[in-house]
Design a protein around this nucleic acid. Structure first.
Lengths: 160, 160
DNA sequence: ACTTACGTTTACGTTAACGTCAGTTTTATG
DNA sequence: CATAAAACTGACGTTAACGTAAACGTAAGT
């Protein structure tokens, strides 16, 4: 008598609107990503509801993260492929690894650029603030408090 | 007799296609940004050629940089406004400064997120590489060289 | 002055990434 | 079992961000 396997993966699953709510998007968007071939949730019958598992969720998260950094869905397709390859299939392995490394280097460049932008913004805010501080004598008490509050925040931001 | 002012700013100027070439975009795109109100190059007559100066160039650079990080032109509009305000106009100053600070904090969040992604990618590449190394006995000399080359690169990427 | 390359405006075309119905079918619940 | 809530499948609509073509003016070299 085959007992029901107690070792069944408890792997949680999600409905389409659960994921949509969690990530602040619409079900339509999720279906669209499937149209593009980026997701392939299970179904009991070909017409029944989509069942998303952790893996699907992770992929969706990746997609949305990529979008926040300005990647188009087409570009994200390439990145997603990285997570699909079976490394025992020793054929395109080299290309895959190279692509992965290049991708990491791209990320490094983005980080550097962001740090430059950060410095610029900070510089801008500082000079802005200096002008404010120079003319604060004529200002109200309230205004002077605002200014010194901003000074504290900006100084703190300048430390990291 | 007014002499021609020898102190004229040598400020370099650019044509539309000079900028387009430099940044790898089309003149059409640059005109479009002007349509959106993000650029306002000088002209000798209202119908003659556009003359871009350093300031215009800087703004364009900012726009393109923003786009690379996933901002829409609409969002970039807000950021560009930051660079326009006259800080002697002590009215919306507080809002401006607050917006600037918030923007820096957003950048910090993006940097953090990128660092997380970087770690993930690196982790992925490492485990990928380990599988390769595990089965390298049966591989050709050439293949083994590839693998150890990748190992060096990935180890180096893991240090920073 | 002539040509040639570049610039300008106007206006319509295009593509990605969904939004928005409408009509139908599943799934959950009293 | 009924019925309401949620999902499904087309299919067409929309918006941002340009592309592209036509028709014309202008600046620069020969």
């Amino acid at each position: 008598m085959p007992l029901p396997d107690a070792n069944e993966k408890p792997s949680l699953t999600f409905t389409i609107s659960e994921l949509a709510d969690e990530f602040g998007i619409t079900p339509r968007a999720i279906r669209y990503y499937e149209e593009c071939g980026f997701l392939s949730p299970r179904r009991k019958t070909p017409t029944s509801q989509r069942v998303y598992d952790e893996r699907d969720r992770a992929r969706l998260k990746l997609i949305l993260r990529g979008k926040r950094f300005g990647y188009s869905l087409a570009e994200l397709g390439d990145i997603l492929k990285l997570y699909e390859i079976d490394p025992t299939q020793g054929k395109q392995i080299r290309r895959t690894l190279e692509y992965g490394i290049r991708h990491i280097q791209e990320i490094d460049e983005k980080i550097e650029e962001l740090q430059e932008i950060r410095e610029e913004m900070l510089e801008f805010a500082r000079s802005f603030l200096e002008i404010l501080e120079a003319g604060k004598d004529g200002k109200s008490r309230e205004m002077r408090d605002e200014i010194s509050g901003a000074r504290i925040i900006i100084d703190r931001l300048g430390e990291s």
